[in-house]
Structure formats: structure tokens, C-alpha cells
Amino acid sequence: MVKIGDIELGAFPLLLAPMEDVSDPPFRALCKQQGADMMYTEFIAAEGLIRDAAKSVHKLDIFDYERPMGIQIFGDKIDVMCDAAAIAEEAGPELVDINFGCPVKKVACKGAGSGALLDIPKMVKMTEEIVKRCTLPVTVKTRLGWDHDSIHIVDIARRLQDVGIKALTIHGRTRQQMYKGEADWSWIAKVKEQQDIHIPIFGNGDIDSPEKALEYKNRYGVDGIMIGRAAIGYPWIFKEVKHFFATGEKLGPPTIRERVEVCKKHLAFSVEWKGPKEGIFEMRMHYTNYFRGIQNFKPYRQRLVEAGSYEDTFAILDEVAEQLSEYVF
């Protein structure tokens, strides 16, 4: 049984990665239904929380059926991050997660996200102060290092554990790599192999199939896997991985009708949570992912993007289900 503090996550949990503009409540609801064991909010700017910025505060929304849930925060100022962690706790998650991994320039080059890897003593101190401030478990997500010449993840893991974090997720790339090249899980395995590191270590990066999930589970000895980009438009990945672990057999891909039904659920929740205008607008980024690689979908995608109402969008999706239902995967 893998545990973060007192939170029980099963023998080998699958985690949904926090992804900006993706991991919102509508998307999380679908991933939970498909088997995600632990999920996180989109990463939230600490400065936005302490200023009570509407967009940041809205990201604190958590629903009971999502649990266990973590709220992830990022920032470069220790006092601000501590205050933001306290605000996050008040929203009622199971844990608070610190983002030391985001590679985006506007975040990292200000010393937040993976920018913290350029100042490890500050990174450790910030973590220590947040742990002291919080009553809930504190976890961290980070990368191997800033670049290939500064990979210190084993030492970082040990120092973060020593100041009190309850779990660590490691993305197997450096900040310099961004999302390019292949994730190097050998460094994640080195962290896991340390006899004095006893907190759960979760691996992240490049898991896009049940076969790879099982291969990496067995090869690198991690306590669980965090899945990010492979779940976008394909929440079924969690169910497929679990089925493969249990049986050694692959589930068939979801049919067109199944894809339409899940897409409609996503849209309905988006409209409910964000309002009709924003909910419909923000769903436009997801249609390509739900129907990726399906012949003859392009004209429908164009119509979905142009649709201005909930009813019109649903009608087009129903048409997709009817007209493309014979598509063979």
C-alpha cells in the first residue's frame, strides 16, 4: 500500500499530472471516472492567491468525488508561498504540492517552477517553511536538474525528505530539455534505490501506453506513475493501464460513440463550472485530442470550433456519433 502521510493510494497508484489549462474540474472528473487514483489542480500562482485574484481562487475548487486531491502552487518568494499554502489548505485538499518543475520561461526564469533548481538551498528552505506552515502533507514535483551538467536529483530528494515532504514526483527531464527528447528514468531509479529515502517516489514523463507503464514500473521500481500529456483527450489511459497490469491484455480503444459521450460530459461540466461562453470556448482545444487520427473528422472539428451555443455543439457531436460510428480503429 502506497501512502502519502495517512492518504492510502493503493498498491501502485496512477496520478494525473497538474497541467495548466487542462487539469480543471471538468477534465479531472473524467480521469477519476476512468481510474486516476490521485489528482491535482492546475498549478496556481502563489501571488494570485494572496492577492485574491479571481482566476487563481477559482482553481481552488475541489469536488468530493475527485478525492484524494492535491492543490499545487508555485512561486519564487518564500513568505508568499507560505501564505499561499495556508490559503490552499483552507480549500480542503488532502495535500499541498509545490511545483519545482514547470519549465516555461515566464515561470522558470523568475526563479519559480524549475527555476528553483538554480538555487537548491533556497528550494530546500522554501519547502521547509511551507512544511512548517501546513498541517496537511506537503509533496513536491520537480525535474532532474536545470541542465545535463547540474543533475542533483538524488541529493535534492534526500534534502527535501529531510525537511518533511511526504512524497516526491520526478519528471525525467531537465529544465533545458523542456518536453523534448526522451525522459531519463534511470535518475528516478537512482533516487528510489537510496536506502535512506523512504518517501514514495513517483515517476513522470513519456508514459503513453499500458505497455510502457508496465515496463517502467518493473524496470525503475517507482512507487507509482504520474501521467500527463497522454491523458489529454484520452482519459481512458488510466483504465487501460490498470487493466493491462491486472490481466496482461490490452483493452480496445474507445469507440466513436464512447468518445462523443465523454466529450459531451466534458463540455457539460465545463459550461456548468465556467459558464456558457468560457466553457464552450475553452472546450475548443480538446476536440482534436478526443478524435485524434480519425479520418473525416476535420470538417466536424471546424464546425465545433465555430459553434457558439451549447445546443449547437451537442448537435454536432451527435452527428459525429451517427456519421462516423462505423470507423474502425
Rank of each mutant, 00 (worst) to 15 (best):
V2F: 07
V2S: 01
I4E: 03
D6K: 12
D6C: 01
I7C: 06
G10A: 13
G10H: 07
F12R: 10
P18I: 15
E20Y: 09
S23R: 06
S23Q: 05
P26V: 04
P26Y: 01
R28C: 09
A29D: 06
L30E: 08
L30Y: 05
M39N: 02
M39E: 10
F43Q: 06
I44V: 13
I44R: 04
A45H: 09
A46Y: 01
A46Q: 05
A54E: 14
V57D: 07
H58C: 05
L60N: 06
D61M: 15
I62V: 14
D64L: 14
P68D: 13
M69V: 14
M69L: 08
G70P: 03
F74S: 09
F74H: 06
V80D: 04
V80T: 12
C82H: 12
D83A: 15
D83F: 09
A84Y: 02
A88W: 10
G92H: 07
P93N: 05
P93Q: 07
E94Q: 06
L95S: 03
V96H: 00
V96C: 08
V96I: 15
G101M: 00
C102I: 01
K110I: 13
A112M: 05
S114Y: 07
S114Q: 07
G115F: 00
K122Q: 13
M123G: 04
V124Q: 02
K132F: 11
P137S: 11
K141H: 06
T142I: 13
T142H: 10
H148K: 14
D149A: 12
D149R: 01
V154H: 03
R158N: 06
R158S: 13
L160M: 12
A167M: 09
T169S: 11
I170K: 01
H171W: 08
G172N: 13
T174L: 02
Q176Y: 15
Q177T: 05
M178K: 12
W185F: 05
A189W: 03
A189F: 04
K190W: 07
E193L: 14
Q195V: 13
D196Y: 15
I197A: 08
H198D: 15
N204G: 07
N204F: 03
G205W: 01
G205A: 04
I207M: 05
P210Y: 02
E211Q: 15
A213P: 10
E215D: 10
K217S: 11
Y220P: 01
Y220Q: 04
G221E: 03
I225T: 02
M226W: 00
K242G: 12
T247K: 11
E249F: 01
G252Q: 14
G252W: 02
P253C: 13
P254R: 11
P254S: 10
I256A: 00
I256G: 00
R257A: 11
K264Y: 08
K264E: 12
K264N: 02
S270Q: 07
E272V: 05
P276Q: 07
E278G: 05
I280D: 00
F281C: 12
M283F: 00
H286R: 07
Y290C: 11
Y290D: 12
G293H: 07
Q295R: 15
F297W: 01
Q302E: 10
L304K: 01
S309K: 02
S309C: 13
E311H: 09
T313I: 06
F314N: 12
I316L: 09
A321R: 12
S325E: 08
S325P: 02
S325C: 06
V328D: 14
V328K: 15
F329S: 04
